[in-house]
Amino acid sequence: MPLSVTDRRPGRPLRVLVVEDSVFFRSQLRRLLQQDGDIQVVGEAGDGREAIVMASSLRPDLVTMDVEMPVLDGIAAVRAVMQVAPTPILMLSALTRHGADATFAALEAGAVDFLPKQALQGDGSAANARALRERIRALVEDRAHRVPIGPVAPTAHTEAYFAERSLLVIGASTGGPALVGDLLAECAAHLPCAVLVVMHMPAGFTGYFAERVARHCALPVVEARDGDVLVPGHVWIAPGGRQTLLRRGTHLELEIEDGAPQEMYRPSIDLTLASAAKRCARRTLAVIATGMGHDGTAGSRALHAAGGLVWAQDQASSVVFGMPGAVVNAGLAHEVVSATELGRRLRHGR
């Protein structure tokens, strides 16, 4: 279901509903969010039930949602809010296994994005709070919405999108978990290429993400490990906090390295694509999907130059059109494809 696109008059502050059971955290969030003056916390809900009521009465531009709450937890609240008053929801989650679990459940339920709560604490919290505000602005201003892959009538398409490829790399960030989950659920069991998903996620989340999407995917899905040999019909999720590259041993295999701390993204889509450009460009198809920033553009350029194929997700179906937009603007996309069409092609499986 498309989200309501609120009519944000220029200069009107961005209206945020904070859902969080800790009074202390609520007040801190309010403080951090309102620091620049352009974001206004219009409501604070202490549990999921209040969140539903307040989201429907206040109609905020965005909701920040905690997971662990009394009465009704954040996931159920996301689902209900998306039904009653569809609003972009940013999950603030704990960086634990349970937190990861809950986060993905929330994303499946319709939340657009998540940020680990730990980002707001301790040293560097000022920078991270800035990043949080940035994220909120981007989510609202890109009129964030999530378009689930719609039902597709089986068509008689005969194009072979994947048959000539060894490797499909899907790069995504904000809005990515939900999209990738949907796409993998569409994948035909006979998909003739290996799939490598590179998504901006913290360590600890990716393994669980793999486990989660595996439940709905016809193909085996695992978190990538150093030395894994790429084989068709398998899906690898690049581990969070590290870099995933391709190397040639006896076979084409994955190389996982720690990466340098100054690297902005771990995993970096650019690095993975650049190594693909080097190892197997002609046999690689990269899909740059929803996400903030422009990770993937430099890698796409390398891949493009080396003969690889690049698709970008279209604006309408992207939660944030940053990354795909950058690829399109740089003239690197061979094709601009909607989420629904991507799903159709994967289901088609050739």
């Binding site: 560097g124 920078a127 996620m201 913290p202 600890g204 902005m264 771990r266």
Partner: peptide
């Protein structure tokens, strides 16, 4: 900072 400091899953 890169994305975020990892915390091992509990």
């Amino acid at each position: 900072p890169a994305i975020l400091a990892p915390t091992p899953a509990a």
